[in-house]
Design a protein around this nucleic acid. Structure first.
Lengths: 142, 142
DNA sequence: CTTGAACCTCTAGCTGCTAGAGGATGTATC
DNA sequence: GATACATCCTCTAGCAGCTAGAGGTTCAAG
């Protein structure tokens, strides 16, 4: 029987976060001690590890919910899990492409700045005028 | 004199977002029509363009506040603006590195999935067991 | 003078947590 | 049994950066 603190340490998840996962139904309600404190077992430890690892790979809580759902039905075909992972991969690739364009632009800005007065600052100048950009970038909402 | 809707279209910013920027003090309070509707001039259009473009390049609203502040004092040296941009560049590079590791892992997951049953799904298996990962990834909070 | 799009304010919601108040429990030691 | 103190509990509110909706007013065209 594990306390929430132990679970927290074992998975690198903050105590508050574990309770939050319970609140939104991602973690099941655990058993309680006589005094009302949460007590976990190994199945719940595994579940939380799964969640955390998925988060590290960038999956949204909704996607994780689906994945957990799927893993509860071992006899179904795994196309869905595969599709979720592919979607995630696609998102990551899109984000990388955007970041690449941003990096190019930022590098250019920084390199062109010669360290004079604000009035002549290339950084501000570029920010002022999108038309100076050589790449298409569109990070907002990424 | 521009209405908020016109400003919205010209900058690709939602009306609500413009009002939000005003609320947090990033945009100045504009003049008003007799009936109390907001009326903007070209200086404000420029300011909003600056904000939007900076957002597209991933600057935080706080960073933008600093940058706007700087650009109001054209005679100061531009080290600060330069430093902000460099900081941003560094962040972008860190995020790219993280995404790269994620992509590797996701690709591997997806490629190893042979499309059978959930029980044998590599995607879920990898998510279950971090130790199978070949790269260090740590996307949370990125 | 009427219509209808665009405006107004205000409040609440989104993701994924995180922090703090104010109090109860659990365990080790005396 | 008493005491100390870490850990636990619930509840509420906050973070970034918007976005959406209710319920009502103004503006410009016809």
């Amino acid at each position: 029987m594990l306390t929430i603190g132990t679970l927290s340490k074992k998975t690198g998840t903050k105590v508050q976060t574990i309770r939050y996962y319970e609140q939104i139904g991602l973690m099941p309600e655990p058993g309680r001690s006589e005094g009302g404190q949460r007590r976990y077992d190994n199945a719940q430890l595994d579940r939380l590890s799964f969640i955390r690892h998925s988060r590290q790979l960038g999956f949204s809580l909704d996607a994780i919910r689906e994945l957990l759902d799927l893993s509860d039905h071992p006899n179904r075909p795994c196309d869905e899990a595969d599709a979720i992972a592919r979607r995630q991969l696609k998102q990551v690739e899109q984000r990388m492409a955007r970041l690449k364009a941003l990096r190019t632009e930022l590098k250019r800005m920084v390199h062109e700045c010669s360290g004079g007065r604000i009035a002549d600052c290339r950084v501000l100048e570029v920010l002022r005028d999108h038309s100076e950009c050589l790449t298409e970038h569109d990070e907002i909402g990424a």
